[in-house]
Simulated assay, not measured.
Amino acid sequence: MNDDGMRPARLHRPWRALIVVVEVLLAAGAVWGAVPLWDLGVRTLTVTLSDGTVLTSTRFVGSWMTGAIGLGLVAAILLVDAAREAILAVRVPSRRIPEAHLEGA
Results as ranks from 00 to 15, higher is better:
V31T: 09
V31Q: 10
G33I: 10
A34V: 04
A34G: 03
V35S: 05
V35Q: 09
P36K: 00
L37C: 11
L37M: 15
W38M: 14
W38P: 01
D39G: 11
L40S: 09
L40R: 14
G41L: 02
V42H: 10
V42D: 05
V42A: 07
V42Y: 04
R43I: 11
R43E: 12
R43N: 06
T44P: 02
T44E: 14
L45V: 15
L45E: 15
L45D: 13
L45T: 13
T46G: 01
V47E: 14
V47D: 12
T48F: 00
T48Y: 02
L49A: 13
L49S: 11
L49W: 12
S50P: 08
S50L: 12
D51N: 15
D51A: 09
D51P: 02
G52Q: 00
G52L: 03
G52I: 05
G52Y: 02
G52N: 05
T53H: 04
T53N: 02
V54I: 15
V54F: 02
V54C: 06
L55N: 13
L55I: 15
T56D: 02
S57K: 13
S57R: 14
S57A: 13
T58H: 08
T58R: 12
T58C: 03
R59F: 08
R59W: 10
R59Y: 08
F60Q: 12
F60V: 13
F60E: 10
V61A: 08
G62D: 15
G62V: 14
S63A: 14
S63I: 12
W64G: 05
M65I: 15
M65D: 05
M65S: 09
T66M: 13
T66V: 11
G67H: 01
G67L: 07
A68F: 00
A68K: 01
I69C: 06
I69P: 00
I69D: 04
I69N: 05
G70Q: 03
L71W: 03
L71H: 00
L71M: 02
G72T: 12
L73I: 13
L73S: 13
L73A: 15
L73E: 02
L73D: 01
V74G: 01
V74M: 07
A75D: 02
A76L: 15
A76H: 02
A76T: 09
A76P: 01
A76G: 05
I77H: 04
L78G: 08
V80T: 08
V80G: 10
V80A: 10
V80C: 07
D81W: 14
D81Q: 13
A82G: 06
A82P: 04
A83G: 09
A83T: 11
R84Q: 07
R84T: 09
R84N: 06
E85Q: 13
E85M: 13
L88S: 05
L88R: 08
L88Y: 11
A89I: 11
A89M: 04
V90E: 06
V90H: 11
R91W: 15
V92I: 07
V92P: 00
P93N: 10
P93M: 09
S94C: 09
S94E: 15
S94L: 05
R95V: 11
R95Y: 08
R95D: 08
R96H: 12
R96A: 13
R96C: 04
I97V: 14
I97L: 07
P98Y: 10
P98E: 14
E99M: 10
E99G: 03
A100F: 09
H101V: 11
H101K: 10
